[in-house]
Design a protein around this nucleic acid. Structure first.
Lengths: 243, 243, 243, 243
DNA sequence: CATGAATGAGTTTTCATTCAT
DNA sequence: TATGAATGAAAACTCATTCAT
């Protein structure tokens, strides 16, 4: 599971995002771009780091294990990233945009039913495909967001404010029940990410998790229908087959 | 915030639970009982450990900081608990029962509206009063539940199965919309715990968190109303003022 | 040679100074003083560190070698001093006062002949007994005095300014030739310390160094007579036998 | 200050010496001579190395910084010099001859007043123009002269012995007071080099150093007059303006 | 019950040097 | 000539744990 062993990415937009993200990650390193080999190694490292950090947290992770998983020597890894913290930050950056992207797709011109259903579906698919990213992000925030707090306060805040206004407009237009938009967003985040972050618990209780196609569909359906009903939108049951 | 500096406990049952837990935790340690001072020190350690582990995770926590926060020497702390892992396990145990208690109160004989609303309210109040416990638990599960997986698979699974049956009965009785009970439970867990686990993010986006009485009420109302509406229960709006 | 293997300190004032210094070093650590064992180990470490740092410089020194020379494990050494830099600073402090002390003894009420002769003699004996201290100090200053620059600019400057005024007074009183006092002080420092700092070169050129009693006397005589004559003081040849 | 950024060389003979040295150093490298670019790069490296080694000492210096300062890659630098130690040795060689050259100019046929005054002036100007060289040399000797001890014992010893005989002759001829010649030489070295090696301390105490023309003249005057008076030579005050 | 002293295993990092192109 | 990539050995810490008192 996760970026590394996820196989061919399942949904179009996720592939697209990952591709975009990589490009951006690259040219932020040095003017002039990276050599083929650098690009390859950086990616290997970041994917190994994502696994290690999400499994063990920052302190529990070791540079040596990341290097081993990336198939290179510790020294060589440190040739690419100056320190453990630098790897960690790069890994967060590697993930952050992808992780926050779905919210951007919420289209003010669309109908809340379709828009929110699509958003929830994307979030759940993210949880299914990139559970490690979800856990890494959760870990970072739970420890007080030492690295990304500024981003949360600026970029994310701006984005959330904007989308809250979209929801307000839908409410004003009578298209959905009056709810506090920010709590609606939190609810969507909470429910969808829960399936990635607590997958061990979910597996302990249900015997399966989002890695299973069938369970994924069920989850998508349950969450979407509960939330849409919760905001007073009659949700056409025949969705959830989108994949 | 948290167990230690929680100030006057907000709700009756939580106080009751904590008190109960303490007694139980304490006298389950060693046959023969503990001296007054032992009892006091164990509690000091566990509360310090809760803070440290929840802030830093298992690997990031240090025995020295726990000892310092508990106001004793490292050596003395290790007189009470044989190892860091032992402290960690004791801390988990210290918390687990309290953390899982609310679900037990779901009364089959009650009406789903009242029962679920009460359950949600309890969970949110737990998040408000014991955010460190929530984070500790989340951390443990996210890292694969190395210590508590067996408990999840046995005790928790039994409890969840039982309550799922309760919900099924309510559905069969036509008292609520047909939803997958386990997903309903997950949704309640996810949304309520989210406010504790991601409080830094919530604060970054809203400027406040559950520590604020006003925000706590808002959250309680939003979450409860969304979920109850989501399962087809008309929820009397004037609740949420229960505190 | 040096503090450690210097045997019983040769001259009274040096012993006195070292003793004074130690006391000061001790109680600057923690209120309440150090235990017997701590005092012993701190001293062992500082003396080992003095040797290592003076031989290899800060970068060339290794904590492991200092620990070995102090007869303890690296970890135990780091129990006493938090870092290599801390050891280095403590070593500088351990030495600095002793190193700068002789200048303080320059007595305005005395005759320049006696006073300066005594000062030169002290400085040369310092070089003979604590060549490692001299080299450590030289090293520090030559690398730009990263640690002690503030002390040079404040304490030392004050002291030098004061003693320059003493010399000015002697000049005004017609007791010595008109020279720039600060250059006189530099000349005394330079010549006396040179025998410690460049002892390897001196040994290569003369076959001996200040460790040899005979050479020590010669040096004392040559330097004192050259400088005193240089400032127009007829120097009674029978001194230099003071030891 | 130093070789690199020395600006317009102050005195004729120093320029001459440096020039001579360079030629000699260069074509002594490899039989067959060096290409234009090799010659240039070797010089760049040696000048960068001089700065780095004199600032940080051998252990504190890094090949990478030398390479950076020389404007080339580490790998390329190591193409020119097989190892860090090789660079260090070459840098010492690059400097040594210049550093020791002034003593050679002491002319037995001349008058001690002129000869010694000229020698002192040369040494002080060396300190002013090549303080880095002075510090490098001091560092090497203070660490036990690991690289140049043989040279000190052979070449330098021969030279010093020879010049001691010159001084003896002057003494025998009644041209100066009876002093131990070797101590006289040490005194000249010590005083003149002190202004380069301890320039940070000098600046801390006087606010200036040999980089300042005015201070340079003062120093030259003070040191020369003190030493010449010290050996019983009446020194014509109006010199020291030679530059 | 309590603590200061000591330690060994592990972890991050630095850096001279080598390799391949 | 020149350089980017890679590495191994060393070094400075960190920290849970043990020991002695």
């Amino acid at each position: 599971m996760g970026v590394r062993e996820g196989g061919p990415a399942g949904s179009e937009w996720a592939v697209h995002l990952m591709a975009g993200l990589r490009v951006r990650t690259q040219d932020s390193v040095k003017a002039g771009g990276l050599s083929r080999i650098q690009e390859k190694n950086r990616t290997l490292i970041l994917e190994a780091a994502l696994g290690e950090f999400s499994r063990k947290g920052f302190s529990g992770a070791t540079v040596e294990r990341i290097a081993a998983e990336a198939g290179m020597s510790k020294s060589n890894l440190l040739y690419y990233f100056a320190s453990k913290e630098a790897i960690y930050n790069a890994t967060l950056a590697y993930i952050l945009e992808v992780w926050l992207a779905p919210l951007k797709t919420l289209n003010p011109a669309g109908e809340p039913a379709q828009e929110l259903a699509a958003y929830i579906r994307q979030k759940i698919e993210m949880s299914a495909q990139f559970p490690e990213a979800s856990r890494l992000f959760a870990n970072e925030v739970m420890q007080g967001a030492p690295q990304i707090l500024p981003i949360l306060q600026s970029d994310l805040k701006r984005l959330v404010d904007e989308k809250c206004r979209v929801i307000e407009d839908w409410i004003s237009a009578g298209k959905m029940r009056r709810v506090d938009p920010v709590h609606l967003i939190f609810t969507i985040w909470a429910t969808t990410q829960h399936y990635a972050d607590f997958s061990v618990q979910i597996r302990a209780l249900t015997g399966t998790d989002l890695g299973d196609e069938e369970f994924l569909r069920q989850t998508e359906f349950s969450v979407t229908s509960l939330i849409l009903n919760g905001i007073g939108i009659v949700w056409p049951q025949e969705s959830g087959q989108s994949r």
